[in-house]
Amino acid sequence: MGDGPGDGPGGRTCRVLLVDDHALVRSGFRMILEVEPDLEVVGEAADGRAAVEAAAALAPDVVLMDVQMPVLDGVAATEQVVAAGTSRVVVLTTFDRDDHLFAALRAGASGFLLKNADPDDLVSAVRAVARGHALLSPEVTRRVVERFTAPSGAAYRPELLAELTHRERGVLRLVARGLSNAEVAAELVLGEATVKTHVSRVLLKLGVRDRVQAVVLAYESGLVRPGAGDDGGTRG
C-alpha cells in the first residue's frame, strides 16, 4: 500500500471525502487522516445522495464510502461517483460480507476495507488508491475467484482479451492470482518497471480503472480459472 507522506496523486496533498451516516464514525476517520501532512479531508456526507453531490462539487481524490446508508446506499453512490470519473472510491463496512464486496467491485470501487481496520491500514489505503493502485489483498482475490468462477453455467468471454499481446496476457494471469508487480517481475524474470508498463497497458486496453476490475475481467473472460494450473504463456 502507501509508503508515507507525499504519496498523494502527483506528490500533492490527497483530498478525501468522508461518507457515513454516523457523525462519530466520520469524526474518527477525520482525526486519523488529518494528522497526516499529505492527507486533507475536504468534506463529509451522511447519505449516498449527498455523497454523489459532494463528490461532484469537491472532486476529491478518494471517497471513503460506507455501504449501508439512507436515501441512497453506498454501492449505488459508488457507481455514480465512479461514473463521473473524478474520484476513486474505497468502500467501508462493518460487516465482512461477500455481497457487499462484490457489489462494491461491480460498482467500480478501487478497494474494500473493514471499519475495524487499523488506523495505519486506513491511511495506507487512502494513499494507495490516490496513487492509482487498488486494494486487492490475496484474501479478496481468492473470494473474487470463487465468486466469478463458481459453476453457474455462465459463458466465458475470451473476446474481452482480444487486444492483449501474449506477454500482456501472461502478466494479467499472474496479477489475477494476486501477485504484486515485484512478484510478477520475479516470476517472469523481468524488471519491475517493465511489469508496471505492461500492467498499465493492460488496464488501458481493457478499459478498466485498476487491478481490481482487471482481475474480475480476467476471470470472467476465462483467462484464469480456479483449481486449474496455468495454461502456459507466462514466460517467453
Rank of each mutant, 00 (worst) to 15 (best):
L64C: 10
D21V: 09
V19A: 00
V62S: 01
P37E: 14
H100V: 11
A57F: 00
V42S: 10
G74F: 11
V16F: 06
L33S: 09
T94F: 13
L18W: 10
D99E: 14
V67L: 09
A84N: 00
D73M: 09
M31F: 15
G48R: 07
L92C: 13
V91R: 09
V91E: 13
A77D: 05
V89W: 00
A50Q: 05
V81Q: 02
G28I: 12
P60C: 01
G74S: 13
V90Y: 08
D99P: 00
M31N: 15
V41F: 14
P60I: 00
V35E: 14
V52F: 08
A59Y: 06
V62F: 03
D66I: 03
G43V: 09
F29E: 10
P60W: 02
D96L: 06
A104L: 00
A23E: 15
V81E: 01
V16D: 00
L17G: 04
T93H: 13
I32V: 15
L39G: 04
D98Y: 01
E34M: 13
L92D: 14
A56Y: 00
L18D: 07
A77I: 03
D99W: 06
V19L: 04
S27N: 11
D98H: 03
L18I: 12
S87N: 09
V16I: 08
L18Y: 13
M65F: 02
L105V: 12
D98K: 04
V90G: 12
G85Q: 07
V35N: 12
R49A: 15
A84D: 00
V25H: 10
Q80H: 11
F29W: 08
V25Y: 05
L39H: 08
